[in-house]
Amino acid sequence: MACTRVAAVAADSPGLHVCEAGSRASTSSLSPRASIEHVRLSPRALTLNESVNKIQIFSGRQSGYDGVRRIQPIRAQAVDNELESNGTSATATSQKTTFFYLVANAKFMLDDEEHFQEQMQEKLRMYGERNKEQDFWIVLEPEFLDKQPEVAKRVGRPAVALVSTDKVWITFMKLRLDRVLKGELIVNSADEALTGKLTTVTFERPAKWIAPYPKYEGDWWTPFLYKKN
């Protein structure tokens, strides 16, 4: 959907405190949809990307926001059709939603960290028991990364994001997962934050499995994927 937008709109829409103004306008050239039959990512070890020198992912957040706010009037232009179908945005000018995310490679998020799965299921169970509306999702190969090349090049592919409107909970999850990038998105519709290019990822079985129980397998993340209305 992003491809069809005029630059000004693209610059304004999904929130962008992370990116420099220049990079914001261009869509990412990364096309991670390709060949993800088998994922070969080294788990549990962060890699240093020598070519990436001065990325200010976490600093300058505030000024990024201000930038977004300042150019807000441009938003008068029509954006996506999804906007209408998605109840979160009734008027084109005011209804922006902020999402908070953690992102890392899929292997880490979905395969290595079995406690993450337990935790997600625990939260979903609790929401069910208390009739709370779900406000957290797992996004496989998030579309929003296309508009955040600075973030995109810092995560292994395929990437997986945990996205929520609950900033406080995301802060906690960052503490728990640690090896993840944290960011925010200001979007016009939930779709922009929650749409993933994939619905499943396959992982190779580990060569050596020392646990006295079988590995969690299967698409455990399915209940956490965003479903459009």
């Binding site: 990307n49 990436v52 490679n105 880490f108 090049k153 810092r154 995560v155 292994g156 990038l181």
Partner: peptide, 8 residues
Amino acid sequence: ESEPQMVY
């Protein structure tokens, strides 16, 4: 300190 160069 090397966090800005890490790839997750």
